[in-house]
Amino acid sequence: MRAFSQHTGLVAPLDRANVDTDAIIPKQFLKSIKRSGFGPNLFDEWRYLDVGEPGQDCSTRPLNPDFVLNQPRYQGASILLARENFGCGSSREHAPWALEDYGFRAIIAPSFADIFYNNCFKNGILPIVLDAAIVDRLFKECETSEGYALTVDLDRQTVTTPGGEAIGFEVDAGRKYRLLNGLDDIGLTLLLSDKIKAYEERRKVEAPWLFA
């Protein structure tokens, strides 16, 4: 996994609440058995005017000019500004895969759905929860100022605006450590193998039907 320490990037504002993972990456693209290549189909139904199918060349498809990511000023955006309950619905990790493949490194929203939030950390994307009033202000600043960029610093746990204001955010110590170092969860967990085995031995006595 790619490590995340500090990132400065152009911000794209996606002004709608309850953006679900079906919208982030529609089901027809979930048939892939690979982990990469989902970026061109990110927000497929909103981004293109035709119906997307797996295996298409997306560069020749008709774009929806009204969709925010298609506007020239947001090309190259790497920070997504979103509304409440972002990433709700299906647990598909294809959603963070698609966001990452498109080029997003961080997502800022007043709240995230639990499974999506968790999936982001496994893929080098930092989901940042900020107070709804602050997010609202960032939306206004972003929309009125072309080229609006933010700096995200995971170590210091701050989002810094172009005006130099540093806004703090919370993140679990364990998640922060792993993301800062780009560490593989499995390798770390296997260091606790003896504890897992000891637990199993105890459970085999307490609840043998679980091991039948």
């Binding site: 982990r35 647990s91 598909r92 990790e93 963070p96 499974i115 968790n118 999936n119 496994k122 893929n123 679990d172 364990g174 969860d185 499995i186 967990t189 296997l190 606790l192 897992i196 199993e200």
Partner: peptide, 21 residues
Amino acid sequence: AHGIGTSEVEHVLATQCLWQK
């Protein structure tokens, strides 16, 4: 019982465990 992403599917296959808050 709850849903997990694919990285966690791999994690459970490999370790029989999940990190949870």
